[in-house]
Simulated scan of single mutants.
Amino acid sequence: MTAPIEVSGQSAEAQPEAALTGLSQKAIQGRSLGQIAWMRLKRDKVAMASGVLVVIFVLAALAAFLLDRVFGVINPLAFNEDLLDASTQMPITGWGGISWDHPMGIEPGYYHGRDILTRIFAGSWISLLIGFAATMISVIIGAVLGVIAGYFRGWVDTVISRAMDMFLAFPLLLFAIALAGVIPDDAFGLTGDWPRILVLVFVIGFFNWPYIGRIVRAQTLSLREREFVDAARSLGGRSPYILFKELLPNLMAPLLVYSTLLIPTNILFEAALSFLGVGVRPPTPTWGGMLSDATSLYSVDPWFMIFPGLAIFVTVLAFNLLGDGLRDALDPRAR
């Protein structure tokens, strides 16, 4: 309806365009769901700061891979024996050998004074690569099987759900220890650290898909009853079209949120395997491996455990806080 207005003593009706433009004479523009989610995310300062940290970590890991494995600019295995006391094999300077040249100190004794900062930097790409790649495998398998189980239901849902239960009951840690412990240094046509990295990515990613599969299945059971699915069926849409063109795009928000929460879990899992000695083999630096090395030095100086532990802690915390912020921003019921 249009509202009557007075124009020179006569009654007239206001046009809809006049109501839309308002006093500022500017047309009102709508916002997409993505723009609304971005506005909510920008108001969350903690999530934004965590997102900046995540970007920094990813760029640092990429730079570490290029500088270490491609160009060979940095050398995390370089010895600094001249900075160790000849009798005690401890750093000459206090606080673990911290100096301007070695801001995080050096490793003593058997490790020949290797620079801790360089090793943390060089080991970052392994942790993030395994975390991201394993998460991608879990998301792809879990999303596809979860949406199929939730949409078709019946015996298809029963088979996939029982498979999820079997994978969830599988002793993943023991299996990973047993499998990674027997992988040779040359397998699958690869040499060096790559066979073990490939095995860790496969084991962590393949056996973690049921966590995402259950979430996707539950969401699909709700979405399949919505009007847009009925409309797609009435227009002749077949099941593959409805699954991958109608349902999966509406599941991107929970998939994105859970992915940011699964990445730090996979990083911790890789660090635990390296700590137990069945991850990437030394002397290749990894954060978990550095913590394992620091256990033999803890009685001498606990300082050597702080920086690799802090690297894991800050990385995992940043991903978790970013995931919480994305969940609040993408939830239409969030206030």
Score class of each variant (00 low, 15 high):
residue 214 R to V: 04
residue 286 T to S: 14
residue 303 W to F: 15
residue 313 F to Q: 06
residue 92 I to L: 15
residue 112 H to Y: 13
residue 311 A to T: 06
residue 249 P to L: 13
residue 46 V to N: 07
residue 322 L to P: 10
residue 334 A to M: 13
residue 261 L to Y: 00
residue 277 G to K: 11
residue 305 M to V: 14
residue 135 T to V: 08
residue 200 L to R: 05
residue 293 D to K: 12
residue 269 F to M: 03
residue 206 F to V: 15
residue 63 A to H: 09
residue 68 D to G: 05
residue 274 S to V: 03
residue 222 S to C: 00
residue 11 S to V: 14
residue 228 F to N: 09
residue 42 K to V: 12
residue 308 P to M: 08
residue 131 G to H: 02
residue 305 M to L: 15
residue 22 G to R: 09
residue 240 P to G: 10
residue 88 T to G: 04
residue 71 F to T: 09
residue 101 D to S: 14
residue 195 P to F: 12
residue 283 P to T: 13
residue 161 S to E: 09
residue 244 F to M: 11
residue 182 V to D: 00
residue 3 A to H: 12
residue 105 G to H: 03
residue 219 Q to Y: 13
residue 318 A to P: 03
residue 328 D to L: 08
residue 224 R to Y: 01
residue 67 L to C: 10
residue 35 Q to S: 14
residue 242 I to C: 02
residue 200 L to E: 11
residue 198 L to V: 13
residue 261 L to P: 01
residue 111 Y to N: 05
residue 247 L to I: 15
residue 289 G to P: 02
residue 20 L to F: 06
residue 108 P to G: 14
residue 48 M to F: 10
residue 155 W to G: 08
residue 124 S to I: 02
residue 71 F to I: 13
residue 178 A to D: 01
residue 192 G to H: 04
residue 318 A to E: 02
residue 144 V to G: 02
residue 280 V to M: 05
residue 272 A to E: 02
residue 117 L to A: 14
residue 49 A to F: 08
residue 3 A to W: 07
residue 125 W to L: 05
residue 151 Y to W: 11
residue 166 M to L: 15
residue 3 A to N: 10
residue 133 A to Y: 06
residue 203 V to Y: 01
residue 258 Y to A: 04
residue 266 N to Y: 07
residue 317 L to M: 15
residue 232 A to F: 04
residue 182 V to R: 12
residue 230 D to L: 13
residue 285 P to L: 09
residue 301 D to Y: 02
residue 304 F to L: 05
residue 278 V to I: 07
residue 97 G to A: 07
residue 167 F to D: 00
residue 204 I to P: 00
residue 209 W to T: 06
residue 71 F to V: 13
residue 158 T to A: 11
residue 263 I to W: 03
residue 307 F to A: 15
residue 77 L to D: 14
residue 307 F to L: 14
residue 324 D to A: 12
residue 57 F to W: 08
residue 217 R to Y: 02
residue 122 A to N: 03
residue 148 I to M: 13
residue 153 R to V: 09
residue 69 R to E: 14
residue 140 I to D: 02
residue 100 W to Q: 12
residue 124 S to F: 01
residue 161 S to V: 11
residue 168 L to R: 10
residue 12 A to I: 00
residue 241 Y to T: 11
residue 51 G to M: 10
residue 174 L to P: 08
residue 283 P to F: 12
residue 90 M to K: 10
residue 185 D to C: 00
residue 325 G to D: 05
residue 327 R to M: 09
residue 292 S to A: 15
residue 332 P to G: 09
residue 38 W to H: 02
residue 206 F to D: 01
residue 20 L to W: 04
residue 224 R to P: 00
residue 310 L to K: 09
residue 145 L to V: 03
residue 257 V to T: 12
residue 323 G to L: 07
residue 209 W to G: 02
residue 326 L to A: 04
residue 1 M to D: 04
residue 317 L to Y: 09
residue 58 V to C: 06
residue 153 R to C: 04
residue 223 L to E: 03
residue 273 L to I: 07
residue 335 R to W: 13
residue 82 D to N: 13
residue 162 R to S: 12
residue 333 R to P: 04
residue 138 S to C: 08
residue 90 M to V: 05
residue 87 S to V: 11
